[in-house]
């Protein structure tokens, strides 16, 4: 029964990810005085792409067609270990936060190699930029995660959230800083606006889109879907760690319904905030990204320091 629920949660996570990015796009369009596409537009795009035959370059090795499956698999697996609307599911015990970061790194590793594989200028450029950003973002993310781990004395996400729910409301400065750091990292890692522009692949400054420029058909669909899952993963992580209230702790239908509604509201608000931020700031020069991520690292470090100094 528990395993069935865990499976349902993971599948629901993967299926709802395009809806989340559709909602994000919808809010962003409204904020920019444009007519929004319907909420299910990402599903239509995916269906269209899945129906098309992928075109693979002559110079591509086996790595190139294999990468979309690895990337999507890593994303789907991480969706299974993050508590979505219930904690204490059996899948959550399999892996902890460091494995989650490892999954992100794995999919990035393969995407970067695939970008280099075909040998186009854009792919190599995108790969090098993506690696630059990743090398700066990962320490900040791990630092923010360690802050949480110090507070809850565990690196398992589900147990940590359970601990936070048990301990009730407390003003924790370390969490505020970790939240700030994690938000900045999330923006960088999911390729949102101050770092990368997700809406275009016609810019010389593009990063993620440059890497996947050679992909088409169902390969592209898988990569885009994985990107949407990754965006929602960050959203769910931030929402459930810093605002854990409403998560289902026992597996009754009412509790699960409340959990689902709560995460829906949290994600909706989070996406609106992200859309607002994306509308109000301009894309950053590539060489200022290190300042941005340096600030994220500083926030995470301050979070850890203030945990050690003020909360112990």
């Amino acid at each position: 029964m528990d395993w069935l629920l865990a499976l349902i949660q993971a599948v629901l996570f993967v299926l709802l990810a395009p809806l989340f990015s559709g909602w994000l796009k919808w809010v962003k369009c409204l904020l920019q005085n444009r007519r929004p596409p319907p909420l299910w537009q990402p599903y239509r795009d995916l269906r269209k792409l899945f129906g098309k035959r992928p075109v693979v370059a002559d110079t591509a090795s086996w790595l190139f067609p294999a990468t979309p499956y690895v990337v999507f698999g890593a994303a789907a697996l991480s969706a299974a270990i993050v508590p979505f609307f219930a904690v204490n599911l059996p899948t959550a015990a399999i892996a902890d936060m460091i494995v989650l970061v490892g999954f992100f790194a794995l999919s990035r590793f393969f995407l970067t190699l695939a970008g280099l594989d075909v040998g186009t200028a854009f792919g190599g450029m995108g790969s090098s930029r993506d690696m630059t950003i990743a090398s700066l973002a990962e320490p900040a993310m791990l630092m923010a995660i360690f802050t949480l781990a110090l507070t809850a004395s565990t690196t398992n996400i589900s147990v940590a959230i359970d601990y936070l729910l048990d301990s009730g409301f407390a003003l924790r400065p370390s969490f505020l800083f970790a939240l700030g750091g994690l938000l900045l990292v999330a923006v960088a890692e999911t390729g949102r606006i101050p770092i990368d522009n997700p809406a275009t692949h016609l810019e010389l400054t593009m990063i993620h889109e440059a890497m996947i420029l050679e992909y088409s058909g169902r390969h592209l669909a898988l990569i885009e879907w994985a990107g949407q899952i990754r965006l929602m993963l960050y959203g769910v992580l931030i929402a459930n760690i810093f605002l854990p209230w409403g998560l289902a702790r026992e597996f009754t239908p009412e509790a699960l319904g409340v959990g689902l509604a709560a995460i829906g509201v949290k994600l909706g608000v989070l996406a609106a905030v992200l859309a607002l931020a994306e509308t109000s700031v301009a894309k950053m020069r590539l060489f200022r990204v290190q300042e941005f991520l340096g600030f994220a690292y500083l926030l995470a470090l301050l979070g850890m320091l203030s945990h050690i100094i003020l909360e112990v």
Binding site: L171, P173, L176, L310
Partner: peptide, 10 residues
């Protein structure tokens, strides 16, 4: 107070 202390350093 501790929360504000952290914000002051920030």
């Amino acid at each position: 107070i501790l929360f504000i202390a952290a914000l002051v350093v920030f």
